[in-house]
Each structure stands twice: as structure tokens, then as C-alpha cells.
């Protein structure tokens, strides 16, 4: 496999970011849940792509679609959204 060992900088940034979102949406757990769901879907599709499990006619989520879905969730949280952009390969 091409699995990379955890890179401390990216990993720590991701931990801090997820923690920040979790705290920010403590009163709105459905928003946090939806965020997790978007990432989960993206991750699952990336894995399928790598393994060649492509369903004909099915278009997996692109990074910009992930970004726009998250943008809808984080409407009034510009700081969270711009920080999210720092994680995306080509947002």
C-alpha cells in the first residue's frame, strides 16, 4: 500500500480544527454531524476510486463540491470555512 505515516503538522492541525468545530457547534450537533458526514462520504469515495471500485455513471464528490457543501453548513462562520480551505487540495 501507499499508506503514508502520519505527518505531525497536518495531523495536529486536523485535530485542532475538528475540535474547534465540535466546540463551535456544540449547540447545533446536527451541523457537526453533517460536516462529519460530508468528510466521510468524500473519504469513502476516494478509497473506492483508489481501489478501482467505480460505479458507471456515478460521479464522486470533487474537492470543490466538498468545499461548497461545507460552505453551506458554515454560513456564518467565515473563519471556520477559510480554515477548511487550507485542508483542501485544490479549493
Amino acid at each position: 500500500g501507499q499508506q503514508q505515516a502520519g505527518q505531525p503538522v497536518e495531523f495536529n492541525h486536523a485535530i485542532n480544527y475538528v475540535n474547534k468545530i465540535k466546540n463551535r457547534f456544540q449547540g447545533q450537533p446536527e451541523i457537526y454531524k453533517a460536516f462529519l458526514e460530508i468528510l466521510h462520504t468524500y473519504q469513502k469515495e476516494q478509497r473506492n476510486l483508489k481501489e478501482g471500485l467505480v460505479t458507471p455513471g456515478y460521479k464522486p464528490l470533487t474537492e470543490s463540491e466538498v468545499y461548497s457543501q461545507v460552505a453551506k453548513l458554515f454560513q456564518n462562520q467565515e473563519d471556520l470555512l477559510s480554515e477548511f480551505g487550507q485542508f483542501l487540495p485544490d479549493a
Binding site: 503514508q4 497536518e10 492541525h13 485535530i15 475538528v18 465540535k22 468528510l39 466521510h40 485542508f87 487540495p89
Partner: peptide, 27 residues
């Protein structure tokens, strides 16, 4: 200390792999 559920950890994993991809692209 953080109180992370498996779903939280999965999000951390996804975000950090995205960030690593981004870094690889920028190199």
C-alpha cells in the same frame, strides 16, 4: 485533552490526508 469519538477521529484522518495531498501538490 480531547474527547474524540470514532467519527471524530475519522474526520481528523480525512482532513489530514487531504492536507497531505495538498502539500504534495504544492511541492
Amino acid at each position: 485533552s480531547y474527547d474524540f469519538t470514532p467519527a471524530d477521529s475519522s474526520a481528523v484522518f480525512t482532513l489530514s490526508s487531504m492536507a497531505m495531498q495538498k502539500r504534495d501538490q504544492e511541492l
